[in-house]
Design a protein around this nucleic acid. Structure first.
Lengths: 132, 132
DNA sequence: TATTGTTATACTCTATAACTATA
DNA sequence: TATAGTTATAGAGTATAACAATA
């Protein structure tokens, strides 16, 4: 339990630094990561992040102003707004993705390949297990 | 790598919720956790968290106003200020510590005891390995 | 000169409450 | 009535730059 918390802080700190180098807060980094392969409405995005919808408005305002994401009225629901990555945003996400891999490598490579796979398998079983 | 990041987000979200229930931001939760068994000066605290010392001033101001921590001039260095938990702060930390265990239990208990120990051993080896 | 801490300032993140428009 | 999104407001977290006190 302690190890899990420590690992979370170390990992978050790496993501935080990487975000800062690209002028992204951790939250905006996540937003972009979530939108990598999806288009979501404001409320769905807020639910993903555990934030209020009014908070999303500000986040998406700033990301839109920087050309990373765009808004588009939903075709199905006149009230809803879809959010998606622009080309520029998509490029940034791909760049970030490989930066994250590189930045975490010094950590993960302290384990040999077999142990890395064991760790991943254990984490995934923990994260993806059906609700108990 | 993906699993590590996901685990970090899930764990952080649990800590965040627990902090919010006790009116503590994630950062203030960490400050209290760090001070659990130490007394540190402002700069050392800032280094631990990877924050600027001016940010610490605000954080400690608010924590002090709430009676969780206290400041005291360092005996060794006339410039330095030591920060430590008050009795009230220490009580809160102990309460929080067991809340964290309980809140993470649904997650960790998806693994049997042997696998929990394997996971912890792998994480610790990753976190505590000597610099490569 | 360098370090410790604070202050002033500005911006981001966040929630709550009130509002508009659509369902 | 309920839901989706925005706006207004307020407070916390954060960094940068400038400062005073001490080393």
């Amino acid at each position: 339990m302690d190890a899990l918390v420590r690992a979370a802080f170390v990992t978050t700190s790496v993501l935080n630094r990487l975000g800062a180098e690209n002028d992204l807060s951790l939250t905006l980094l996540r937003v972009c990561g979530i939108l990598r392969d999806r288009r979501l409405r404001m409320v769905a995005l807020a639910d993903y992040l555990g934030l209020e919808k009014s908070t999303m408005t500000g986040l998406i305002d700033r990301a839109e102003k920087r050309g990373l994401v765009a808004r588009s009225p939903s075709a199905e629901d006149g009230r809803a707004i879809d959010v998606f990555l622009t080309n520029q945003g998509a490029e940034l996400v791909e760049r970030l993705y490989s930066q994250v891999q590189q930045a975490l490598a010094p950590l993960t490579e302290r384990l040999n390949t077999a142990d890395q796979q064991r760790l991943q398998a254990l984490l995934l079983r923990m994260l993806d297990a059906p609700d108990s």
